[in-house]
């Protein structure tokens, strides 16, 4: 898909507020192990927090897969958030700053995209949403 090697992987279910905290702690552990700078760690964990909350609140729960990855000599952290919720009807709109379907600030998706290096969003009505993000070590 994105053409990178997966070195280590972990899955965290996201079904409660607790799990959102657990998801970001998992991502932080991976980010530290991979040697991301403090600022990049913070950006990635913040993005993970936004996306995990989206999975819970808008997707009705799901899971996160977090992995240490390698591509073309670079190492990074890859996280995929999946749910089987209602999906996002209009992806372009959802990625616009300030757009929200549920009382948030509308910065979740668009903000998370700015915080990571690679961002990939797949969503189909009635089957669910998958967001994958990667942050590479600088």
């Amino acid at each position: 898909m994105t053409g990178h090697e997966v070195e280590q992987e972990e899955t965290v279910p996201i079904t409660s507020n607790d799990d959102v905290v657990r998801a970001r702690q998992t991502v932080r552990t991976y980010a530290q192990q991979c040697g991301l700078s403090l600022v990049d760690q913070t950006k990635l964990v913040t993005a993970a927090s936004e996306l995990a909350r989206n999975t819970l609140v808008y997707g009705g729960g799901g899971r996160m897969r977090c992995a240490a990855v390698r591509r073309a000599g670079r190492v990074g952290v890859h996280a995929v958030f999946e749910d089987r919720g209602p999906g996002i009807p209009d992806l372009d709109l959802a990625l616009t700053d300030g757009w929200t379907s549920g009382g948030g600030l509308g910065l979740g998706l668009s903000g998370a995209r700015r915080l990571v290096d690679d961002f990939d969003l797949h969503s189909e009505p009635a089957t669910g949403t998958r967001v994958s993000v990667t942050k590479w070590k600088r």
């Binding site: 403090l38 600022v39 760690q41 913070t42 950006k43 913040t46 936004e50 700053d97 600030l105 910065l107 668009s110 903000g111 998370a112 700015r114 915080l115």
Partner: peptide, 14 residues
Amino acid sequence: MRPAVAITLVELGL
């Protein structure tokens, strides 16, 4: 507020 947090918030658009 930590510098890394501040930088991230700005990037997030907050």
